[in-house]
Design a protein around this nucleic acid. Structure first.
Lengths: 239, 239
DNA sequence: AACGTTATGTGCGGTAGCGTACAGAGATTA
DNA sequence: TAATCTCTGTACGCTACCGCACATAACGTT
């Protein structure tokens, strides 16, 4: 049986009043997400929604030719499966585990029932979805206007914010896929950051050595997204 | 006083059951939107939501240096101001009228009241918001992977779908701003389409001569977005 | 220890779009 | 009619990233 403090590890669930959460608590189960696992295939029905704890999930747009790009990232601050309560049931995006870890999952129907009570859970999920909208819009503009170096910084910082440590288990090939560029492009950008002493990587492990250095190089897109999440999902504003 | 058939010109309102719409009908007012008019500034509170009839509105991400890119487009199939009912009240995006025309507007508080009844209007608005999510995600991937020619085709087709005629009042400079490229880049791409006989333009007026030709050149992003709108906002699915 | 696999480094030609500069032609105003 | 403004066309060097090819090195397996 899960303890109340387990739920605090997900920021959304942590914002819920106790009695609201109490109603759903018995129905949650903790699952372990493994790197590369798919939580949602394009156009397929999901059976659960996932509230990441220390795992990170990427929402990917996959194209006909197989190329893909991350449109948003979801960690402890969010939930995977907004299409369930938004009413569409499916989405053209894929959801892939980008960093292994734990998540709490709930049967889709149970979340929908709770959502349609039109109470705190609904308010919370809608505010979160708006944050997701912002992240996607900003990703679109970033893909257009900023160079790979800056985008890599943005990606690292967004990931770092969703991890407890400062190490990412991630090959340059995977990062490049997320950013929608060649593996070689990712290698070159990562090499620059390593030579600048901001990160150190080795065969699929990336250590962030100088977070502030990354923040100095990153484009504004990072803070636009972060500030909007903070505003929308701040305890004072939401309840 | 507006007649019931006025509301049918907006696809969202047209999907509402008569009694639901009837409750709100007296509170709508018809407004004329002019080219370039701003309906929503970044971070500012909106007082109304707008349901376009024959006008088109672009949602833009504006950056510090003034450069901007369209993240989504809204016409008769949608509504401008989702942040009101999503709970965030404001958004970092701007909403700019891209094609002059009429819209129905409603005081924000009235729409919120209706939304919180958790009835058909809520279901409809949430499904629409999910469609918007898809459009933004697809814009992000399109900006990354497809060249300007294809993106221009996508943009023209998305606009055309939201107009009754086949003429756009739009300078190449404005199109370039929407796509987030240089004016010269837009000129060159438009020139290719004109030489191919697909469009004819002259000082701010673009005539689409061969819609099918555009559809043959456009990237898949167009149909991904269109199909998802059709699915989510289809009469059979939504009510 | 030998081998295959995986992760990373590098080089090279190609190209799409950028920044800049300038020109011309239609529209508007004086 | 002249002057001005707006919209569009074109050219040129530059840069970032692509596509491809290949090299190197670390790790795991047997």
């Amino acid at each position: 049986m899960l303890e109340p403090h387990d739920f605090q590890k997900n920021a959304l669930l942590g914002l819920l009043p106790e009695d609201e959460l109490g109603r759903l608590m018995p129905h949650f189960e903790e699952v372990t997400l493994t790197l590369g696992q798919s939580l949602c295939e394009s156009g397929q029905h999901m059976h659960h929604v996932y509230f990441p704890l220390d795992s990170i999930v990427s929402l990917l747009c996959v194209m006909e030719n197989g190329a893909s790009t991350e449109s948003a990232v979801v960690g402890y601050e969010g939930v995977v499966g907004v299409s369930l309560f938004m009413g569409g049931e499916t989405t053209p995006s894929r959801a892939i585990v980008q960093s292994a870890g734990k998540a709490l999952r709930l049967k889709g129907q149970l979340l929908k029932n709770e959502f349609y009570r039109a109470g705190p859970m609904q308010r919370l999920l809608l505010r979160y979805t708006q944050a997701l909208l912002t992240q996607m819009a900003q990703t679109a503009v970033c893909n257009r206007h900023h160079n790979l170096d800056q985008q890599l910084c943005r990606w690292l910082l967004l990931s770092l914010d969703r991890l407890q440590g400062n190490e990412l288990i991630m090959t340059q090939e995977l990062i490049a896929n997320m950013l929608g560029v060649r593996r070689e492009g990712g290698t070159e950008a990562a090499g620059k950051l390593q030579r600048a002493g901001l990160i150190a990587y080795h065969r699929g492990h990336i250590h962030v050595l100088d977070r502030q250095g990354l923040e100095e190089r990153v484009c504004e897109c990072y803070s636009v997204v972060k500030d909007e999440y903070d505003r929308l999902l701040n305890h004072h504003n939401v309840m």
